[in-house]
């Protein structure tokens, strides 16, 4: 309850604005460090994208480097290496959609079917853990387990079977990175599906069971339709991020497997810019990815919103 003094004369807009500004001055002060961060390190850096239209000359710096118009972009569009990186990115993204996307869903269904809370919590604690490890550790662990002198080949050798050549083999790169992402985030991804499964009304299962539906029919006619909206939502969101397939993961292994197998758009930007020093060219590739990526994410969000509404009313 705040009592205002009666206003004698109508206030001008400017006056009101000044009053609100004055009233919120402490909050605005609290905002400052965070706002400064976003202005400098996001919008300031965003401005740096002008380098995509310049030829970067280290001696004169970003602002005085000469303009070259769209030269960097036209060079990029006729560069086979760039298109190969795009191809690898999309290929890995599709593999992830097919093999990684369903993994958390399957695991969530398994976890949800456990009647013992204690067991379920234990398994959850274990499978969430790899999400918090760095990619450096995950890649090192895979190297140790699947490498030429690793655990897997040790077992295969002891059993008198052929050993497998995975680590360092370019042909094995794409399945390997999908396996890595399943190991790291397959458990973590169950959180959202488990939350959806927990919210399915228990009475639906009960009446289906009373009508004589067995476990499979309940799964098919109750569980799946109930969680379909969230599955479709996540799928669309993932499609929006199709140009991002895990920069750190790829960069760590790109040298060992070679650009033919392992170059994605992000690592292309890294090697062109930070390794070879073609900053303008690399920034053009990065900007291309940023613009297309933002458009895709925006479209995906719109689409998800529309389908989300339908999902509620159907």
């Amino acid at each position: 309850m705040v009592l205002y003094k009666p206003v004698k004369q109508p206030e001008t807009k400017r006056n009101q604005r000044w009053k609100r500004f004055h009233r919120d001055r402490v909050l605005l002060l609290l905002m400052l460090p965070g706002l400064g961060y976003f202005l400098v390190f996001h919008y300031g850096a965003l401005l740096g994208n002008v380098i995509a239209f310049k030829e970067y000359v280290p001696f004169v710096g970003l602002w005085d480097s000469p303009w070259v118009g769209f030269d960097n972009f036209s060079a990029m569009f006729s560069d086979g290496d760039f298109w190969h990186a795009v191809w690898n990115t999309l290929f890995i993204a599709v593999l992830q959609l097919i093999f990684f996307f369903p993994a958390p869903l399957a695991l969530a269904l398994l976890l949800h079917s456990l009647t013992s809370d204690l067991l379920r919590r234990f398994v959850q604690s274990v499978v969430y853990l790899p999400h918090f490890l760095s990619w450096v550790i995950v890649v090192a662990l895979f190297q140790q387990i699947l490498g030429g002198a690793g655990l897997l080949n040790g077992f295969l050798g002891d059993a008198g079977l052929n050993t497998v050549d995975i680590i360092g083999n370019p042909d094995a790169f794409k399945p390997l990175v999908v396996a890595q992402v399943i190991w790291k985030d397959g458990g973590w991804g169950t959180i959202i599906f488990l939350a959806a499964l927990m919210q399915v009304n228990e009475q639906l299962y009960e009446s289906a069971a009373l009508d004589g539906a067995g476990p499979w029919r309940r799964f098919w006619h109750v569980t799946l339709p109930q969680i379909r909206p969230i599955v479709i939502l996540l799928l669309i969101m993932r499609l929006g991020e199709i140009l991002s397939v895990g920069f750190e993961q790829m960069l760590l292994q790109r040298d060992a497997y070679g650009p033919e197998a392992a170059e994605i758009i992000d690592t292309f930007v890294y090697y062109q810019g930070l390794v070879n020093g073609n900053f303008g060219y690399a920034a053009a590739a990065g900007l291309f990815k940023g613009v297309v990526g933002a458009a895709l994410v925006y479209t995906a969000n719109k689409l998800a919103h529309r389908l989300g509404e339908q999902g509620v009313y159907r």
Partner: peptide
């Protein structure tokens, strides 16, 4: 209803959609 909060929030959320990119960040 904090003064200026809406534009600031939009400014923040936009960075989610459009990250600045590796090269500009490095040059900055």
């Amino acid at each position: 209803k904090v003064y200026g909060a809406k534009p600031v929030l939009l400014l923040v959320l936009f960075t989610f959609l459009f990250p600045p990119g590796m090269i500009p960040a490095y040059l900055l």
